[in-house]
């Protein structure tokens, strides 16, 4: 079984009016069956309200399925005894770094998680050092988190998760509030964790360029998985993505427009080097 597996996962919530009468039932996640292999880099796309965040919260047992099941590293999230193990196996990083950072020093922030699960002091320091190294923040070890840039704060939040030695990290729009450099830093760190430490990464994002190096992409709409494939397969379907309120990277869009204007260029171009190479053949 993969590191994350869901079978017919459905999540419904009941809407109530002011007098607590039931107004209706919303299905946020609708019959989703997927499996992520250990060490994969997964990206999840979908418009606001498509159900991707609710889906992600199931992976570390923040939300329980209404129907169906979720297994994390073989553990059923409905098993109460396993909740803490599941949260250590699958750590979560949210959009706003300021809402997740609580300590006054970077190293305390990163050590907070391991300390809470009773890791021996010496090992805590080892984990802190290693985690900060992994996200490239070692030299800020004794800094105050509120003196850091957005990208640096988000890397500290990621280090705090890495210190828990999770097999899987889920990130819900981790770059939404960052400037261009901050976005690049965070995405680079995620790929490094994935390649060097074999951590499974599940990245939710609205920035299409951040997805091109993922192993597999899932697109959600109205709680369902409506597209699944490699970034190239997904981004070939420019019109379909636009109809789902999504987009493609600018290079893909430019290549698509040039092809439509009659140039002979392959579809699904993801890198600017590919576009350059195919245009060179034409001149």
């Amino acid at each position: 079984m993969g590191i994350v597996k869901t079978e017919n996962l459905t999540f419904e919530y009941i809407r109530r009016d002011e007098n607590d009468n039931v107004e209706g039932i919303n299905t946020a996640v609708d019959n989703v069956s997927v499996e992520f292999k250990e060490g994969e880099f997964i990206a999840i796309l979908g418009h606001n309200g498509s159900g991707k965040s609710t889906f992600a919260k199931h992976i570390n047992a923040l939300v329980m399925p209404t129907e169906g099941s979720v297994w994390v590293d073989g553990m059923d999230t409905k098993d109460d005894d396993k909740v803490l193990d599941i949260r250590q196996t699958a750590g979560m990083v949210f959009q706003n770094p300021d809402n997740q950072i609580i300590c006054t020093l970077v190293e305390e922030e990163v050590g907070f998680g391991p300390e809470n699960i009773g890791v021996p002091t010496e090992e805590i320091w080892e984990r802190v050092a290693k985690s900060l190294e992994a996200v490239g923040m070692t030299k800020f070890r004794n800094a105050s988190p509120n003196k850091l840039s957005g990208g640096q704060k988000q890397r500290v939040a990621i280090a705090g998760i890495v210190a828990m030695k999770p097999k899987c990290i889920i990130l819900d729009e981790p770059t939404a509030m960052l400037d261009p450099s901050g976005r690049k830093e965070v995405i680079r760190v995620l790929h490094e964790l994935n390649e060097k430490e074999h951590v499974t990464v599940v990245l939710i994002t609205h920035y299409m360029e951040e997805v091109i190096d993922a192993d597999r992409v899932f697109v959600m709409d109205a709680g369902k998985v409506v597209m699944e494939g490699t970034p190239r397969q997904i981004f070939t379907e420019v019109e379909r993505l636009k109809s789902l309120r999504l987009d493609v990277p600018q290079v893909t869009e430019l290549a698509y427009e040039l092809k439509k204007a009659g140039l002979s260029i392959p579809s699904g171009i993801l890198m600017k080097e590919e576009l350059t190479a195919s245009l060179l053949k034409l001149v």
Partner: peptide, 9 residues
């Protein structure tokens, strides 16, 4: 536009 999907942007 922070946090909005591409169409929302």
């Amino acid at each position: 536009t922070a946090g909005l999907d591409p169409k929302g942007r």
